[in-house]
Write a protein that binds this DNA or RNA. Sequence first.
DNA 1: AACGGTACTGTATATAGCAAGGTACTGTAA
DNA 2: TTACAGTACCTTGCTATATACAGTACCGTT
Lengths: 104, 104
Amino acid sequence: MNIQFKKGVLELCVLTLLQNDDRYGYELVSRISQNIEISEGTIYPLLRRLQKDGNVTTYLRESNEGPPRKYYKLTESGKKMCSELTDEWFGFVKKVNIILGRSK
Amino acid sequence: MNIQFKKGVLELCVLTLLQNDDRYGYELVSRISQNIEISEGTIYPLLRRLQKDGNVTTYLRESNEGPPRKYYKLTESGKKMCSELTDEWFGFVKKVNIILGRSK
DNA sequence: AACGGTACTGTATATAGCAAGGTACTGTAA
DNA sequence: TTACAGTACCTTGCTATATACAGTACCGTT
């Protein structure tokens, strides 16, 4: 799997998954990695970035299957970012398709 | 335009454009930038990489509109790389669509 | 002769994903 | 009761790629 393709897209995936429900880091890793190869060392720094930029907030909740889980919740600016990134992504794919001659 | 989305995809675009005809760097920049914002400083290092890795060869041809043009031509391994990258790209987009919930 | 367009090159910087490592809790099997 | 696998979190250093910025040089037109 080409690493470069993932750049920026994983952020969009995380934001989209957080749109419906709050989720914890490990859960995001396992959900995304069902389709796209991904490592924890990618997601945790990404989540930290999102929090630092005010796009998510976090809260802890205990689990009976291991250590407490840190849940991530989209903020208003996070929701806005998600919809903007979504538009950009589909626009981008469309333009790439034109260049690759797959537009028709 | 999200910079990160472009990572890796520009290479695919360049390879695809070279599949039909030999092209020179400036021409590639202007063709691609009709759809995707791109600068010369991006394409030339990319072309040098492709040449260094044996995916393209080059030859000079004079122009009556400026300095001589350096044409890039796909090698066999470049053609192979192009078709592999193409498959990877469309597979990747499909998987992202599943995560984004746009698969159906 | 000066300018804008064509064409190529090089350096320094920012960013994101990854491998590899670590901590710590829980339940199960040897 | 000890060892292990699974869950859950986090950090550091590395690499690849795109970009900004700067520079060189050729051509035709004004």
